[in-house]
Design a protein around this nucleic acid. Structure first.
Lengths: 109, 109
DNA sequence: ATTATTTATCGTAATATTGCAATATATAAC
DNA sequence: GTTATATATTGCAATATTACGATAAATAAT
């Protein structure tokens, strides 16, 4: 086959997996780090900063937009991208819930 | 092409992306949640719990083992899997660093 | 109006991922 | 030794991802 069986998992599991998948690429991590450092940026900044083709950067931006973690404001001919604070904090919270502390040591059989 | 250009990113970016990719599948999230709930489990428990083929579960376990977040102790014919506490906490810490708090609101242009 | 700038989309090639049946391996039980 | 049990590996088909050139679309500058 080659297709994930989403129907056998919970919405929470599917959604978290989707969000993590969007972050799980070095270019997209680099994009987010750059946006955070600069507060905001346009696509072309990232093309110069990262050294990937414009089409490739645009595609990565689209994937980040799909999970809502960034949003873009049109400014003349360019688009200004920044972090969506609400989505960012929501994902941070979900990850904190997942990475619960009391796992307890030496519980392996 | 079709292959990630790892050489243009930092080790930190590549490593974080690799770890996140290992978590970014609903089956692997479900596996980790089950191990945490039960403290430990064997492959067959997961086959029954998740309803995926044994070969598929074994493959997912392998990917989780690859990033070190779980480890397996051989117990007779079965293998007992549990969370590797150190790797788990390390990843949690890296994610907390990434999800730094002071992003600041309304910084978009 | 024409030209430059910026981004998005389409098409395509290379590679990776997902899932499973079949099979191999390795220990336990008889 | 044979059989049962549990896991890993191999091979394969279906699908997804990554990257980029070419091109479209939309505004800005001249």
């Amino acid at each position: 086959m080659g297709v994930t069986k989403t129907e056998i998992f919970t919405d929470q599991q599917n959604n978290l997996a989707t969000s993590l998948k969007a972050l799980a690429h070095p270019a997209r991590i680099a994009i987010l780090q750059y946006i955070i450092k600069q507060n905001a940026c346009i696509c072309n900044d990232l093309v110069e900063e990262l050294g990937l083709a414009q089409a490739t950067i645009s595609q990565h931006l689209k994937e980040l937009k799909n999970i809502g973690i960034i949003k873009g404001n049109i400014e003349g001919t360019s688009v200004c991208y920044c972090i969506d604070e609400n989505v960012w904090q929501q994902l941070k919270k979900e990850l904190n819930t997942f990475f619960v502390d009391n796992i307890g040591v030496d519980k392996c059989c």
